[in-house]
Nucleic acid binder design. Structure first.
Lengths: 224, 224
DNA sequence: GGCAAGACTCGTACAGTGTACGAATTTATT
DNA sequence: AATAAATTCGTACACTGTACGAGTCTTGCC
């Protein structure tokens, strides 16, 4: 009952006899994925509906289902298409490389905030494995022992994941910040340490991400 | 257009004249929350429907809406009711205390896997703030400087968050593991480092969590 | 040419969702 | 007893994902 691989084809070439508008060149998984990403970017996770997607593609709703198993499949498609990693630099400074990989990762996901809430519950797509592989290489190059490397990778993964999901959840809107501020003002007395450190008011997300990452890398770096 | 605080009352006391069965003692936010948690535990995030909830409570669907703003509100209720923290021990060993807080946190959320996917996108409820406050105190007690404490708290938060969300996402089912194994077998050649370290096959989640946490705490601990 | 076998599109229909609205009922207050 | 407030809930609506099967188009084979 698991997975039956539905038929899917790539096929081009159709006579544009009647309509000169080449705007709707036939459905493909790629086109579906791209359009889905657009809609998700624009309207968030709930902004994607099969009907809407079909309309944006200029097709009937049920036509999608020939290319796609179900809505979940569309999510998978969109997610993976967003997570491509173009690793530019060659290996040199292991620590700097890791920072780069993770910051790029975070930035990519924050550019499409829905991806953060989507990623956890999906299996690891190829584009994620590429990133993990790269991490693994960097760590080994940095002298992290074989016994530590797995825990290190997962801890880095967890860190990026948590940071991104949290950041995406709080959204760029000031509404949440206002809410936090409000809540803090009300209950501040109950949480003196939090209030003292202004934990919830700080909004230097990038800096905090970077500094926490340094903590983690300090701990991972082989002790001397 | 933001928030109108709906009326909500706590009220007890009704004559049980007609029906002796005290099984349905009237709706309250608490009862709604408890029942919602039960349904979420049993059937996951999609297992909670307003109709189902009403039925389980022995009430009409729309009656819920007098106590609750909307379904989101039910989620908030359920989440917060699950995250209560009964901090047992007094402060002593800062590092051990932190480990305890975080492991308890993770365990609590994994006991209700839906909570992991829910938490990120909600505002911080009081029960979470309690935990953060506690973290903050431990860190200060451990000698972490005021300038570092925020970054440290967030990094710990991120770490627990990521670990829990990931773990909950992969579910306890072996189906996912089988899928990963399959994928790895297929593409193993492309990801030699990952395959070598058996990253995806290791299933000692608790141990890995603990070891990664040690990395992080090593990095956070004040340098000497 | 004819024609059959796929590949692909899509209209209709159905069961299910959250919740707006307003009427009915119960409880509290005067 | 009368009035107001609190609480319940039936009905209705717009919207969701997708099963089903009838259509159309493209291609290869005789």
């Amino acid at each position: 009952m698991a997975d039956k691989v539905a038929g899917r084809r790539g096929r081009r070439l159709q006579g544009q006899g009647a309509e000169a508008q080449g705007n709707e060149p036939g459905l493909t998984r790629e086109r579906i994925a791209a359009t889905a990403v657009g809609m998700l970017d624009a309207n968030g996770l709930n902004g994607l509906t099969m009907r809407g997607l079909a309309e944006a593609l200029g097709s009937g709703v049920m036509s999608l289902y020939w290319h796609v198993q179900n809505k979940e499949d569309v999510f998978d498609l969109a997610l993976d298409s967003v997570l491509e990693y173009r690793g530019p630099t060659a290996l040199q400074d292991w620590r700097g490389d890791i920072v780069h990989v993770l910051e790029d990762w975070r930035a990519t996901m924050l550019r499409h905030p829905w991806s953060a809430s989507l990623l956890p519950r999906r299996a690891l797509g190829p584009n994620i494995l590429v990133r993990l592989e790269r991490l693994s290489k960097c760590l080994s190059a940095g002298g992290v022992s074989d016994t530590d490397v797995n825990a290190a990778i997962w801890s880095l993964w967890n860190y990026v994941m948590g940071a991104t999901v949290t950041r995406a959840g709080f959204g760029p809107s000031d509404e949440d910040r206002a809410a936090s501020q409000q809540r803090l003002a009300e209950l501040g007395a109950l949480y003196p340490s939090i209030e003292h450190s202004r934990l919830l008011l700080d909004d230097d997300w990038d800096g905090t991400f970077r500094r926490g990452l340094d903590f983690l890398l300090d701990g991972i770096a082989p002790k001397r």
